[in-house]
C-alpha cells in the first residue's frame, strides 16, 4: 500500500538527503533504493525526483558529476555537500520531532 501524495511530498527531500549521506547515487538508483527499503510505501512518480535533485543542487545541498555506473554506462551521480550533510541531519531531527508528535496524537502513545 502506498502512502498519500501529501505525505510523500513532505518526505521525499529528507529521504533523498538521508540516502545520499550514505553514498553517491544516480536518480534511478535512488528510486530503486527507496522502493526496496520501504516496500513500495514511498513509491512516487519517478519523474518528480529529478526536479527535486536539481533544486537541491542549486541550493548547494548536493553536487553532481557524470561517471560510469557499474553497468559501464555513464550516469549522473549525486552526492551530499558539506552544507547538505548539515541540512540532512537537521531534517532528520525535525522529522523525528514531528513524527513523534504525530504518533502521540494518532497512536495515543
Amino acid at each position: 500500500m502506498t502512502a498519500s501524495n501529501e505525505l510523500i511530498r513532505g518526505a521525499v527531500a529528507p529521504v533523498v538527503l538521508a540516502l545520499l549521506s550514505e553514498r553517491e547515487m544516480y536518480g534511478y538508483e535512488i528510486v530503486k533504493v527507496v522502493n526496496a527499503r520501504t516496500d513500495g510505501v514511498l513509491a512516487f512518480k519517478e519523474g518528480t525526483l529529478y526536479p527535486l535533485l536539481h533544486k537541491l543542487e542549486q541550493q548547494r545541498l548536493i553536487k553532481s558529476r557524470w561517471r560510469d555506473a557499474p553497468s559501464g554506462k555513464p550516469r549522473k551521480y549525486y552526492a551530499l555537500t558539506g552544507k547538505g550533510a548539515v541540512e540532512a541531519k537537521r531534517r532528520r531531527e525535525e522529522w523525528g520531532r514531528v513524527s513523534s508528535a504525530v504518533n502521540t496524537i494518532l497512536c495515543g502513545a
Binding site: G27, H54, P74
Partner: peptide, 9 residues
C-alpha cells in the same frame, strides 16, 4: 544534459 539524464533513467 537533462534529456540525457532522463533518457538514462
Amino acid at each position: 544534459e537533462v534529456r540525457r539524464e532522463l533518457a538514462a533513467h
